[in-house]
């Protein structure tokens, strides 16, 4: 996890942010926060293994946060504390028992947020949870803010459970719950999304196995857009809310493949499952999206992701001259 602290360029207020999970969204958020804060980042351990000492780890993080807050208090400034959970071990196909570790880790982080709220009563506290619209609304089309979640798998059920636990936090902790649809982008660590996998396999001339079919419809949203939205919530503060984060554009897998192919300028080798485990369509009503979420057009998001994958795999392009 990352512990970032510093003054926001836009508001001049001091923030202490504990960011759990440095996957696709976590690393995009870290990058976004770096641009928004005059900040110092500390990388603190927060292990996931079955025998991970959660109590010990969260105590160390709590101590580090308190130290940051005390420094600010001495300087006579009120601190804003944000705890962001964008971690997770599983995906759509993960069985229920595999989520036990995540359940324990999430519980430890919630306890940590509660203890900090008690220990630093003068600070403003916000807990941010990255849930999943894909998990909550799998197989549903025209999802809107008023659609009731009906998860079909353990992955969606644990997300719903985490949302309920977050809403149960003491009233003085503001809660922001984000429900992104199919997130794409590139991160050197964590799970690889469809676009990054296609771009990476195109470079390696490998076949990409897709657990859907070419006509499966999803709403692909760029990780940078999600990160920008969360960073806004961190910097500008807002009342507790649940946000559906999507592009509002239903997109078939085939369309994604075509865009990646066009960007990589080569044919992609793809393999679709004959009995796809993850082929249900999902789409979102554009009118139900937050107006401040400025979704990057798919072609641009895909081109950016493909370029990042290329840079990562082939190294920086040689400079001219």
């Amino acid at each position: 996890m990352i512990l970032a602290s510093g003054r926001a360029h836009a508001t001049g207020r001091h923030h202490v942010i504990a960011l759990f999970g440095l996957g696709l969204i976590g690393s995009a958020l870290q990058h976004e926060l770096r641009q928004r804060l005059i900040a110092a980042n500390d990388l603190l351990p927060f292990g996931w293994g079955p025998a991970a000492p959660f109590a010990l780890q969260s105590a160390a993080i709590e101590h580090a946060v308190a130290r940051q807050a005390t420094n600010l208090d001495i300087a006579g400034q009120q601190s804003l504390f944000d705890c962001v959970w964008c971690a997770g071990v599983g995906g759509f196909a993960t069985p229920a028992e595999a989520f036990e570790t995540e359940r324990r880790a999430f519980g430890a982080v919630l306890d940590f947020a509660r203890r900090l709220a008690t220990r630093l009563p003068d600070s403003e506290h916000t807990f941010h949870l990255l849930s999943s619209a894909g998990g909550l609304f799998e197989g549903r089309r025209h999802v809107s803010g008023s659609t009731r979640p009906e998860p079909l798998r353990p992955y969606g059920r644990i997300k719903l459970e985490q949302e309920a636990l977050t809403r149960d936090l003491p009233g003085r902790i503001n809660t922001q719950i984000y429900r992104p649809t199919s997130v794409y982008g590139f991160a050197p660590r964590g799970r690889t999304g469809l676009v990054a996998a296609l771009a990476g396999d195109a470079i390696r001339r490998r076949t990409t196995r897709i657990f859907g079919n070419p006509n499966t419809i999803r709403d692909y949203v760029f990780a940078d857009d999600i990160a920008r939205f969360i960073a806004d919530a961190v910097v500008y503060r807002a009342p507790s809310a649940t946000h559906l984060l999507a592009s509002g554009k239903p997109t078939s897998v085939l369309e994604v493949v075509r865009h990646v192919e066009a960007r990589m300028q080569r044919s992609l080798y793809v393999q679709f499952d004959t009995t796809p485990s993850n082929a249900r369509d999902m789409s979102v009503e554009p009118g139900s999206l937050p107006p401040s979420l400025r979704a990057t057009p798919l072609q641009i998001g895909i081109a950016t992701t493909a370029d990042r994958v290329m840079r990562h795999m082939t190294g920086p392009a040689p400079s001219g001259g």
């Binding site: 070419p214 006509n215 419809i217 369309e255 075509r258």
Partner: peptide, 11 residues
């Protein structure tokens, strides 16, 4: 058919 229309539009 939706998938046909979207596939044709994609290409």
């Amino acid at each position: 058919r939706g998938p046909v229309a979207r596939a044709a539009s994609s290409v």
